[in-house]
Design a protein around this nucleic acid. Structure first.
Length: 200
DNA sequence: AAGAGGATGCCCT
DNA sequence: GGGCATCCTCTTC
């Protein structure tokens, strides 16, 4: 029931934090509607050297400027013209590290999520996938840059213990342009979870 | 079960 | 103007 403080996002490397975020609970509250789910899949983006990161080489653009804020801020952007992707900024100010949340296991407000997603079934298709979960949680690009200790989007530790041997690491997807960083095993998921995005 | 292709808009990775 | 940190539908096996 503890809302994670900004310190949580600032005292570990982004690779470690991508694993630590597994089992934590992502909450949103918009228009008095609360929805939440347990994080089951993440990806680390580790600029400046990571060629898959929007902040590769410490490049600054209008879109990615919030990546340079301190750990505990949200970086939200539009992908492929129609999908909103949600990232947690980590590390200290000036080092643009981020964790992409790729899948959650829905826990609170399932009916609200079904309505937002226009889905009948409650299965992996409801919140499995980075664009799907933001739609289910009602996350909008307009909230890029907000703090995750506020009242709209936050993450809680509910004492779910995810052991190292229950974490599967694999290469990230959709980053064919990232050259030698294509094969970095920086995608993490909870083993045997039926809520992660489809295998491969 | 698996693959192909289309949708769609912002940012230039 | 090209290319996305994607998802859904339709087709075919």
């Amino acid at each position: 029931m503890t809302k994670l403080p900004v310190e949580f996002y600032q005292h570990h490397d982004v690779i470690e934090l991508s694993k630590l975020l597994l089992g934590k609970h992502l909450f949103t509250k918009f228009n008095e509607q609360v929805t939440a789910g347990m994080i089951v899949e993440t990806e680390a983006y580790r600029a400046p050297e990571d060629k898959a990161s929007h902040a590769f080489g410490l490049k600054r653009t209008k879109r990615n400027q919030v990546m340079y804020l301190s750990g505990g801020h949200a970086y939200i952007y539009l992908c492929y013209g129609m999908y909103t992707l949600f990232n947690v900024i980590t590390n200290t100010e000036g080092i643009p590290h981020g964790v992409l949340i790729r899948a959650i296991q829905p826990t609170i407000g399932l009916e609200i999520m079904q309505k937002r997603r226009n889905k009948i079934k409650i299965d992996r298709s409801l919140t499995g996938g980075p664009g799907a979960l933001t739609q289910a949680l009602g996350i909008n690009v307009k909230d890029s840059g907000i703090l995750l200790t506020g009242s709209k989007i936050w993450i809680e530790d509910r004492n779910t213990n995810v052991k190292e041997e229950d974490i599967i690491a694999s290469p990230r997807v959709g980053i064919d342009y990232a050259e030698e960083y294509i094969h970095m095993p920086w995608r993490f998921r909870i083993k045997n979870s039926p809520w992660t995005s489809p295998a491969k």
